[in-house]
Structures are given as structure tokens and as C-alpha cells.
Simulated assay, not measured.
Amino acid sequence: MSAPASAVKIFAIAAIALSAASCATAQKSTGLAQTTSTGAAQLNLKKGQYLSVTISEAKTSEEAVKARLNYYRTGYPLGAQYGLRQETSLSVVSAIISDYKPTGVLFFSYPDKQSADGLAANPDWEAVKATRPDIWNELKIFSAETTEDLAIKFDPEKSYTLVVAWKKDEDPDGYEKYLSGIEPAVARAGGRFIYKMYNPQLESNDASEPAPAQLTFVEWDDLDGFSRVQATEEYKASVPFFQSGVSKIEFYRMSVRQ
């Protein structure tokens, strides 16, 4: 959504799209074409590390592919000097509510925010960043310091959702009230809140885009978990908090790379 949508419209779209996405997910799997991470899908960070969550839609022209390879060849070694590390990645199975169609969610880390700031200040890095619009139709990097140790193991048998939320200034607490209100229903439906990133910094192809207030990751035992949540009294009672507190969301369903 290029402009903030009403919460009623958001929920109508989400309900329809979730049903369709559940059917589609049962029939296919989606891979990441632009990452090379290996091993188990885990996210293990210490308190105070700096985490970046990257969501992107890559261009597919021959020129863009060459530019992307050059970006990795020059950018990764430069970033490694400041402790930049790719931790893991998830495949985006369905962009339920989004202006673009990313294929994956990538997790990167730095030892601390000072290390990330050091890379950002490097003039060679600025030249690498300048090529991003030639490579990605859309690129969003959400970053924040970890406030506690993280030990997340992504299970290939589970489903994952990510909501990126922009809050309304008039009710900054509404979204958290909504999440707290539905949490018992989420648990009964086989869901768990596994990570929330608050007030991240945003890097985007659109430098004028405001940063969201929160990223919320949920692990589900099956594809229909959130649909069951939507049928509960807790959910219905909590929707007004969402309506008063949220101006815009992006909503993704994800899975572990196969």
C-alpha cells in the first residue's frame, strides 16, 4: 500500500489473502535465489548486537544480475571488516499485504551499533550502496540493537509470519494492546511470538519513506493458525486497538529454505 490504508480494509485483505496463501503454500515451495547461507536456520545473538532484517525484490535483467554479483563481491568483504555477518534467511512464500514481491527475508548482524555506524561512514561503502536501485526494485533494511539474547531455531515443519507495522501518532500504544489482547488466542492456535523489533532504523530505495514502529515475527504450527485466531472473541475484542493504533502494515508468510 503506497498510502496508509484503513484498518478495516487491511483486515479484509488479510482474511482473503491468508486463505489463498494457505492453499498455494500447500502446493509449492519458494526458494531464495540470492543468498548462500548454509547450515541450520538459526538466529543466535547476544544482547547489544545490531541486527538487520533485509526484505527485497530483485531486478532480473542481465545488467541487474551482474550489478548484484558485483555488489556482493565488493560489499561483503568491506562489511566483514566491521563484523557484518549473514546469520540466516527465510523464504517468502506469500506477500499477503505488500507493495512489492520479495523472495526472502535475510538476517544480518554486527557486533554492535558502533560497528554498523563505522561501515556506514566508510566512503567506499557509500559507493556500494549507491548501486542498490540498479539491483533491486525494492530494498528495505530494518535495523535495531538487540535488547536481550536471541536464540531462535527456525523449524522447516513450521510456518512463519512477519508483520511490519507503522503506528498512528494519535494512539501509539494501540498496536501493542492489540498484540497483547490476541496472544492467548495465538497460543491456542499453535502460534508463538518469537521476536519483536521496536523502532528500527530503515534503509530503503525511497529515502523519504518513514521507518515503521515495529516488526513482529510469529511461529505457527500450521498454515491456518492466524485464520483460527481471527475467529476468536479475543481477536474481535482487540481489533479496535489495531484500528486506532495502526496506519499501515506489510504482512508476509515465510518458511525455512529447503
Rank of each mutant, 00 (worst) to 15 (best):
K9S: 15
K9C: 13
F11Q: 03
F11C: 04
I13W: 08
S19I: 07
A20Y: 10
A21F: 04
S22D: 12
S22R: 07
C23P: 00
Q27T: 14
Q27R: 14
Q27A: 14
T30H: 12
T30L: 09
G31Y: 08
A33W: 12
Q34I: 11
Q34S: 13
G39W: 10
G39A: 08
A41D: 01
K47V: 08
Q49C: 07
Y50K: 01
L51N: 06
S52F: 03
S52P: 02
V53N: 02
S56P: 01
A58F: 15
S61E: 14
R68G: 11
R68T: 05
L69K: 15
R73W: 10
G75H: 08
G79N: 01
G79D: 00
A80I: 01
Q81D: 08
L84E: 00
R85N: 11
S91C: 12
V92Y: 04
A95P: 13
I96E: 00
S98Q: 05
T103R: 09
G104M: 08
F107M: 00
F108C: 02
P111N: 11
K113P: 01
Q114S: 12
A116G: 07
D124H: 07
P133W: 04
P133I: 05
N137E: 15
E145N: 07
I152Y: 04
P156S: 10
K168P: 06
D169F: 11
D173S: 13
Y175G: 01
E176G: 08
L179M: 15
E183W: 07
E183S: 13
P184V: 12
A185F: 06
A187P: 13
R188G: 05
G190K: 07
R192T: 13
I194Q: 07
K196D: 08
Y198M: 15
Y198P: 04
Y198W: 15
N199D: 09
Q201M: 10
Q201E: 13
E203R: 08
E203Q: 09
S208G: 13
A211F: 04
A213C: 05
L215T: 01
W220S: 05
L223Q: 08
G225N: 08
F226Q: 09
F226H: 09
Q230A: 15
Q230Y: 12
Q230D: 13
Q230T: 13
T232I: 08
T232Q: 11
E233V: 12
E234D: 12
S238P: 03
Q243E: 15
S244V: 06
G245K: 01
V246Q: 06
I249W: 00
Y252C: 07
Y252N: 08
M254F: 02
R257N: 14
R257I: 10
